[in-house]
Design a protein around this nucleic acid. Sequence first.
DNA 1: GTGGTCTAGACCACT
DNA 2: GTGGTCTAGACCACA
Lengths: 133, 133, 133, 133
Amino acid sequence: MIINLDMQSDIPIYTQLMNQIIEGIAHGDLQPGEALPSVRGLASDIGVNLHTVNKAYTMLKQEGFIQIHRQKGVVIQPDGMPEITPEYELKQYNQLKPIIAEAICRGMSEEQMLDITEQIYREISTPRKENDQ
Amino acid sequence: MIINLDMQSDIPIYTQLMNQIIEGIAHGDLQPGEALPSVRGLASDIGVNLHTVNKAYTMLKQEGFIQIHRQKGVVIQPDGMPEITPEYELKQYNQLKPIIAEAICRGMSEEQMLDITEQIYREISTPRKENDQ
Amino acid sequence: MIINLDMQSDIPIYTQLMNQIIEGIAHGDLQPGEALPSVRGLASDIGVNLHTVNKAYTMLKQEGFIQIHRQKGVVIQPDGMPEITPEYELKQYNQLKPIIAEAICRGMSEEQMLDITEQIYREISTPRKENDQ
Amino acid sequence: MIINLDMQSDIPIYTQLMNQIIEGIAHGDLQPGEALPSVRGLASDIGVNLHTVNKAYTMLKQEGFIQIHRQKGVVIQPDGMPEITPEYELKQYNQLKPIIAEAICRGMSEEQMLDITEQIYREISTPRKENDQ
DNA sequence: GTGGTCTAGACCACT
DNA sequence: GTGGTCTAGACCACA
């Protein structure tokens, strides 16, 4: 699992970390039950502050994507990923709305918009071959 | 044009303002060439500081959605909206990726994802009825 | 003499007006002694406020490019253009410095910089009328 | 790097700041990757409000001359300065045109004009001596 | 009356 | 301690 951070981005590093881990899960790089690096290990690996990694892990735990055990460390949620709740649907709606609105302003057709969405969906969800790693 | 701000949101007010104006344009509430309220007028209307409105207007101007005339005020870009540039496509990709990744994690099917996108696209792009004005 | 104003520019309209008149003189469109439109006439021609034209004329007069007579109206300075004073040289230096500094930052060679300057000089100074200079 | 502001000038302080930083880069005083003072530090050093410095930094960032790292501070763009784009060329043309037009009006010869340009170019681009640091 | 600029001072998010 | 955001209030240039 390769973490790719942009220190110049206006997106907080802990958010970038969360996104990359979620993408790793979606893509199949990170399997349920699989162990994640320790806070200290990951922090030194990617060269960021302990607190930053900790914040990302804590928020992922709150949302149910990972479990944090005192002894065993951090693992991808083995007991099923978070569900599609009404709260989540609302959050997703509010995230998508401004993106789609800008696309419409710029003249993007519904077909183009759906194509891009489909393309990204497939790009993420295509699992790696098992011998990839 | 009704502006609806959430002062408790972690999204900056000026960003919410930008999004609402872009959505207004996409939806047809704000027509190219149409005048927007003055910085001070809008600020007092929605109960925020004039600098906050100013920042939103300035950024919208930089992105090409509006024009700011010397002393004449602010108008929706009459000379054509911003285009779909490679930079925009990249930005949009980076915005959509984490949203779709989370959706996949939560078990949303490609079909569901496309349905939601299509639904939002149509909701926004549906122009207001002509007798609305 | 065609006046071409950009109402969206961040350059004040009176400054644009001044620049265009100075360019007109440099180019030979406006000959020394030649009459300029009245404040009212020009203002209505180009669709700007009386005060704006007045300010441009007043500043051009202060710098010695035009004369304003109560009865005869406005004429291009017939008694010789302003000189190259030390004050002017300093002003010009301060105007050019940031432009050239940015050019250097962007990797423009000295030769390119001089080429552009020469090209603009010739473009402006090419007189329309044969008896010019 | 010495910042020299004219509080009486009609040029906005943030613009003067931008110009001085760009000149510092062009002159080699500020090397790519080099750190700039923090917003608050510079503001108190030069006796202006932090928002004024912030505006200058933000605009320099937008134009690509500097990078603003999350919490690490501000550095001169290490990944290559902005290019000479068509937009930049047009901007430069529009900046130079009125300056050269006035020079022509005042009787400055093409040779003089080019000499001054060359002189400023060399003055700025002359790198500081290597033992300066 | 419009936007542009500047100040002073505050709170927050991030690392 | 860093930049990001917001507020309150002021003065100026422009038209």
